[in-house]
Design a protein around this nucleic acid. Structure first.
Lengths: 152, 152
DNA sequence: CCTTTTGTTCGGTCAACACTGAAAGAACAG
DNA sequence: CTGTTCTTTCAGTGTTGACCGAACAAAAGG
């Protein structure tokens, strides 16, 4: 089996994983493909052909990915198609959003605890959950800041 | 505004947050409600009435929550309805599943890197992403183990 | 058994969303 | 301005999944 065939199978697994997290299948395919294709840039038409997806889907998903910062659009003069490439440096933003979403539950548990002040007995269940998220909110952001290769 | 009214508004915000993460609205309502209701246990019929949801939806979502370990079912003899209560200790499992899902991307980037061995130039984009997930896979599990109130 | 109470299953409805393909719109060369 | 090339928009289609409520099943007392 050729390398390209293996890689297209990998792209499919890659897209399937992110599909479970709510990213459209075609968006995931674009992302995976742009991570491993050679050369690194592709036009919308090329993506449409190589991923066997309609031009409309490619357009919609590229817009989404460019908007999320994960893909960069490079326009060229003349009647030349724009080139798209993955901006792998921005991947950290994606992960950070995930961590933030997790930590943000704490604002909920916190306000719930405030509503129950004066009744510690009743607040016991929520307190247990609140303490977990408080710990996460204390630990995750500093850990994230200590990561190597921070944003240039 | 009474405490109960404020709390039902809180339950609604709580459910809305988890709805964004893919948990059915009614499931989120049950969870939030069971975290703050007094007394701590409720029958399916009571949940149906207080959350204004059909018995079918309550049944389906309770099954899901019990299966996830977040809610415990307590049956009683006679024609008495079973009682449900939140098992707040199991909340950590939920968080752990989230962290695991994040870390698990590394197996993908890793296998992708293997497919590209022999072409470091081309692997550059994937390597950047792989290094991020490798770092996460190295840091998150140990941090999680160090958390206070580990499973009894 | 038969009845009452509780719980689950299941068909049907509705809304949301991914995807397509064609039509409309931009951008540019000539 | 006109034709060409590339891109976006949009209406239509199919699928998925949450939800409801009624029918069904299970459990226990009488």
């Amino acid at each position: 089996m050729s390398r390209e065939t293996s890689l297209s199978a990998w792209v499919e697994r890659f897209a399937a994983h992110f599909a479970e997290e709510g990213i459209p299948l075609i968006g995931g395919r674009i992302l995976g493909y742009l991570l491993v294709c050679d050369p690194t840039e592709r036009t919308a038409a090329e993506l449409s052909q190589e991923l066997e997806a309609s031009s409309g889907s490619i357009s919609t998903n590229l817009k989404f990915l460019v908007n999320a910062g994960l893909v960069t659009k490079r326009t060229r003069r003349g009647r030349q198609a724009a080139q798209y490439r993955v901006d792998e440096k921005r991947w950290a933003d994606l992960v950070q959003r995930k961590l933030d979403a997790l930590v943000s539950v704490r604002t909920l548990t916190e306000s719930g605890m405030r509503l129950m002040s004066g009744d510690p007995q009743r607040a016991h269940r929520l307190r247990t959950v609140d303490q977990l998220y408080t710990w996460l909110a204390d630990e995750l952001p500093p850990l994230w800041e200590r990561r190597p290769n921070p944003p240039k």
